Simulated scan of single mutants.
Amino acid sequence: MHVSIPVSEHVVLVAELSCQLLIFIGADVRDEWSLQGLALGIELGQRSGKQVVVDLSEAEFFSAEVLNELLRPARKGGQLPRLAGPLSSVARRRLEVTGALKFFEVFPTLADAVIRLPDTACSDVTEASGGIQHRSSTATEAASPRLR
């Protein structure tokens, strides 16, 4: 099964499932608002105890700042997000060259990352087979109250 959710450039979208928080990033996340949206989405997932999945399938390239945000949970003693692809050759190369690839669980598709949960009792596994419903449109909208 292939789940495809169109995202525009510079947009970070967040969808919440009962066991996971999904973050979808656009083709080129470099601007401050998108980076803050990514950081807030990851923080929301960490605070909720949910597995965070970052969909990088639209990211042709991502900056060092994006990689820093993806690695931030480990620096705070938290769990790294799962990464969903397919990853572009440039994105995969950035992870390989920096040595970060070995720290992440990387899945070929978003559907694979969502379905392969350690806790198969999660009710969203069956919902994921029929598609993913967005509950909120952006990480900043999903973050109420604001996280710091």
Rank of each mutant, 00 (worst) to 15 (best):
F103W: 13
S144D: 14
A100S: 15
V54N: 10
A121D: 14
R135C: 12
E69F: 07
Q20K: 15
R93S: 14
V12W: 13
A74D: 08
F104G: 14
R47V: 00
G77F: 13
V53N: 02
L22P: 00
P86L: 03
Q79V: 12
D119S: 10
L83T: 00
N68S: 13
Q133C: 15
E58T: 00
S18Q: 12
A84D: 02
A74P: 03
L101S: 11
M1K: 07
W33R: 06
V11L: 12
A91K: 02
E32Y: 10
L22G: 00
E69G: 00
L80H: 08
A113Q: 04
E58V: 01
S63E: 08
V11N: 11
L40N: 07
A139V: 01
F107A: 04
Q20M: 14
A27V: 02
G41N: 02
V125S: 12
I23D: 08
G130V: 05
S48D: 07
R94A: 13
E16F: 04
R82M: 06
G41I: 00
L147V: 03
G45K: 01
A128M: 08
L101R: 15
E105S: 10
P145K: 14
A59C: 08
L17T: 13
S63Q: 10
C122S: 15
F24E: 00
V11H: 15
I5R: 09
Q20N: 06
